[in-house]
Amino acid sequence: MPSALVFFTELSDAPSKAQRELLTLAASIGEPTVAVASEVPEAAVTQLGAYGVNKLLVAPANESSFLDHSLSALEAAVKESAAQVVVVANDNFSREVAARIAVRVDGSIVTDAIDISADLVVTKDELAGSYSAQAQASGGVLFVTLKPNSIEDTPQAQAVSVSVEELAVSAATAPSVRIMATEEKVASDRPKLTEARVVVAGGRGVNGDFSAVEALADALGGAVGASRAATDAGWISHDAQIGQTGVTVSPQLFISAGISGAIQQKAGMQTSKCIIAINKDVDAPVFEIADFGIVGDLDKVLPQAAEEIRRRQA
């Protein structure tokens, strides 16, 4: 049975949905070890046991230099665990850390994975999800970054006890990158965009006002996304941008409102299970990929739908 290592830069009291998917996947491959590049709260340790994690390697952060601690922690964890496969999140930072350590240990890396089989064949998206490919590594440690919403989050039937070890991490090896300032982003009560089951996204057609998009998202318990036209206009934070240069989402339900459906925009959402589009232009390209399309004014359709959902739920 291959041994799998899951690497997190941070782990809060409860693992996020994407983190639980990583744990589920690792447990399906082999007895997973988890390594975290920062302090881990007690509550989280119990949660890891529920996913069959028998070993936790903790490398509490000890300096403010960007990146270096994560690099050293992952390198040490790879050596300590002797894992054949290392799974990490699909965000830019995790990818970069994994990719650099893949170079250091002469391993390999596959990004945008949606599954890994027991014999370590990786299934992944190619060309913005228009292709699905399978790849295999012929030697060295294999690093894999997993797209959120790819694996059904399933804890093990039997929880195990987790042995916790502090990871001995060597001093900085990479040229220093200093953190000069940190701006915290406004926290939202809505689900995380990349992990949400439902995403409602608005584009230039919302004309500066995201309230109807937000109200429908809230009626459905979903996240709010946007096109680049809307984020560039400053109507909503850049973090909401979906697409080639924003985040990729793959929810059960994607509702697109006032978005034309440019190629770079579709790149971030075309693997959604179900797509609904609302646009006043019947020729908008978004309708070519919509399971259900409404030619109409989003300012009328969205509030009516939100109201109807609340009415049915009452």
Binding site: F287, E288, A290, D291, F292, I294, G296, K300, V301, E308
Partner: peptide
């Protein structure tokens, strides 16, 4: 992906 049903809003599309 194939285009699904497309309707025109005549007041009840929501």
């Amino acid at each position: 992906r194939e285009a699904g049903t497309i309707i025109n809003d005549s007041g009840q599309a929501g």
